[in-house]
Design a protein around this nucleic acid. Structure first.
Length: 443
RNA sequence: GGAGAGGUGCCCGAGUGGUUAAAGGGGACGGACUGUAAAUCCGUUGGCUAUGCCUACGCUGGUUCGAAACCAGCCCUCUCCA
């Protein structure tokens, strides 16, 4: 689509985050919402900063973020947008959590190298149900003015009729323009396939925005910077389809660590928010291992710590930065798993790493007592504990000197575990490297 | 529909009949050093009941003592043409 409007003055080039604070010094922002977001480093691009500030100050923001149901849990990558919704609610706006029950059936090509396999509807629905729970930790749901609501775009997308949709919505889209958008351009440049179904994703997301605006008066869509194209397309579509509200777009930067790695990926996969996918202890560990250079930035983004408190940690080093990481981990974990779980994780880690003492708080795996009495091969035990994917991998870890049993390095890959290895706490401890520990408990 | 190029391990990418479980790089993991950080250095990186066996270079067959490599058919991607 052509955009007939002159570009809003605040529309900054991608990647030039710093410009926001230059062109919009904090004193000029009237709303708490934008002041907080700006101060904490959430802002990347905005379609009309002045209008957004005005609406926010007047308490008239109704904003949505869409989440596709591609996995049984959200992960750290989605956390930043959840935080934006939480801040919105705290500052008098109304958050809408949009579950992509419909759009996930199509698949978003944005930022993806290649087509992902289509998911079954049953899988999508199961994912959706599992994903929901985490939002209640961050948002107050209800029907009040600032209470959050959750909707599923399958509600209006699933019943769409193809011909009607083409005539009502499709005619507003220019393929010429769509091909120039980042999501499509990347595939085209890399000579990778972009299937028609994915190509349609943009239309559906644009239509979502229109529908949410009609149904709930939604006037702001937020998301990661990779969503910019989809979001402004929605704004455009809204104008063409006669939406009266002034629709707005706001994106946050796509986060990488100071050394350039994508946020939220570890060896064992994504950093999931649901306990079922990743224990609170491991979640705490993820944040504990933050790089020095990221601590302050992450405190601002992933905790609700007041900024003056965060400032105390600015520029610290050595033992102090280590302490700061613990504070970060505990605050971040408390948001997702609750205060209890967070402080338990912190205690467990303190005992394990600082005192070298094992505790019951470590991830625990149950094994058959009978098997242990007969003698359980170390390789099998490591696989059972989840410390190795296969016997061969377990063997390699042992040979490399990465495995410890009750704190003692093991060198023999033929070692056998039995009841004599059980310690007074009724379990035995297997460790991989310095950081991964699992208690094996006979049942 | 026609012509050409291509499909190799988690990713990129070399290999065009025989020590090829497949060079090199990236990533990841382990070790050393540290602060549970970063950087650096070293090692590992298909599976198994393991001096051997099985699986693997898009799929299916074929040629051969022997195939990722040669042949045929099919599938998929890209480029140009219609």
């Amino acid at each position: 689509m052509r955009d007939p409007r002159p570009k809003p003055p605040c529309l900054i080039a991608q990647g030039l985050i710093a410009q926001i604070s230059i062109s919009y010094p904090m004193t000029k922002l009237k709303s708490d919402f934008l002041n907080i977001l700006s101060e904490r480093g959430f802002l990347h691009q905005c379609s009309d900063m002045e209008a957004l500030d005005k609406e926010a100050a007047a308490g008239k923001l109704i904003a949505y973020v869409g989440y596709d149901c591609t996995a049984p849990s959200l992960h750290v990558g989605s956390l930043i947008s959840i935080m934006m919704l939480a801040w919105l609610q705290k500052t008098g706006g109304k958050p809408i959590v949009l579950m992509g029950g419909g759009t996930t059936r199509v698949g978003d090509p944005s930022g993806k190298d290649e087509t992902r396999q289509l998911r079954t509807v049953a899988e999508i629905d199961a994912n959706k149900d599992a994903m929901k729970q985490v939002f209640s930790r961050f948002l107050q749901f209800g029907s009040g003015k600032t209470e959050a609501i959750m909707v599923d775009n399958a509600e209006w997308l699933a019943p769409l009729n193809y011909i009607d949709f083409l005539r009502d919505v499709g005619r507003h889209f220019s393929v010429n323009r769509m091909l120039t958008m980042d999501s499509a351009k990347m595939r085209l440049e890399r000579e990778q396939e972009l299937s028609f179904i994915e190509f349609n994703y943009m239309l559906l997301q644009a239509y979502d925005y229109v529908e949410l605006s009609r149904r709930y008066g939604c006037n702001l869509q937020m998301g990661g910077s990779d969503q910019w194209g989809n979001i402004v397309t929605g704004i455009d579509l809204g104008r063409r389809m006669g939406v009266k509200d002034h629709l707005l777009a706001l994106t946050c930067p796509l986060l990488t660590t100071a050394s350039g790695a994508k946020m939220g990926k570890t060896a064992s996969g994504a950093v999931w928010l649901n306990e079922a996918q990743l224990s609170a202890y491991d979640y705490w560990q993820y944040w504990r291992n933050t790089e020095d250079a990221d601590v302050i930035r992450f405190m601002k983004l992933f905790t609700m710590m007041p900024t003056d408190e965060i400032q105390q940690y600015e520029g610290v080093a050595g033992a102090e930065i280590n302490h700061a990481k613990q504070v970060l981990a505990t605050h971040a974990t408390a948001l997702v798993h609750g205060r209890m779980a967070a402080s338990n994780a912190a205690d467990t880690a303190r005992q394990m790493f600082e005192q070298g003492a094992r505790t019951q708080g470590l991830p625990t795996v149950e094994i058959e007592g009978e098997k242990l009495e007969k003698g359980l091969g170390l390789l099998e035990a490591l696989v059972k504990a989840g410390l190795a994917a296969t016997n061969s991998e377990a063997r390699r870890h042992i040979v490399a000197g990465g495995i410890r049993l009750n704190g003692e390095q093991v060198h023999n890959d033929k070692s056998v575990l039995n009841m004599s290895h059980i310690q007074t706490d009724g379990a035995l401890l297997l460790s991989l490297g310095k950081k991964k520990h699992v208690l094996l408990k006979p049942v």
